[in-house]
Simulated scan of single mutants.
Amino acid sequence: MTTTSRTENEIMDLERESYRRFQAGDLEGLTDLFADDVLLFNPGSELLRGKQHELAALQEASKVEGLEMSWEATEARISKSEDMAWAHGSIKVKTPDGHVQMEKYVTVWMKVDGQWKLVAQVRNSNG
Rank of each mutant, 00 (worst) to 15 (best):
T2F: 03
T2Y: 00
T3S: 02
T3G: 01
T4K: 03
R6P: 02
T7C: 00
E8W: 05
E10V: 02
I11Y: 06
M12L: 15
L14T: 03
R16W: 07
E17R: 14
E17Q: 15
S18R: 11
S18H: 02
S18Y: 04
R21Q: 13
F22E: 09
Q23T: 12
Q23H: 14
A24G: 09
A24K: 08
A24C: 08
G25A: 08
D26C: 12
E28V: 05
L30N: 07
T31P: 09
L33M: 15
L33C: 07
L39E: 13
F41I: 05
F41G: 00
P43T: 07
G44P: 06
G44A: 00
S45D: 10
L47T: 07
L47R: 13
L48K: 10
L48C: 00
G50I: 07
K51M: 07
K51P: 14
Q52M: 02
H53Q: 06
E54Y: 04
E54H: 05
L55R: 09
L58R: 05
L58Y: 07
Q59F: 01
A61R: 07
S62R: 13
S62A: 10
K63R: 15
G66A: 14
E68Y: 02
M69E: 08
W71D: 04
A76L: 08
A76V: 09
S79K: 11
S79W: 01
K80A: 06
K80E: 05
S81H: 11
S81R: 15
D83I: 13
D83F: 09
A85G: 14
W86I: 08
A87K: 08
A87L: 02
G89P: 04
S90H: 11
S90V: 14
I91L: 12
K92T: 15
K92R: 14
V93C: 12
T95N: 11
G98K: 12
G98T: 12
H99D: 10
V100D: 14
M102N: 11
M102K: 00
E103W: 07
K104W: 12
K104H: 09
K104M: 02
K104Y: 01
K104I: 00
K104R: 10
M110Q: 11
K111D: 09
K111H: 13
K111I: 14
D113F: 03
W116T: 04
L118F: 05
L118W: 05
Q121L: 09
V122Q: 10
V122M: 11
V122R: 01
V122W: 08
S125F: 00
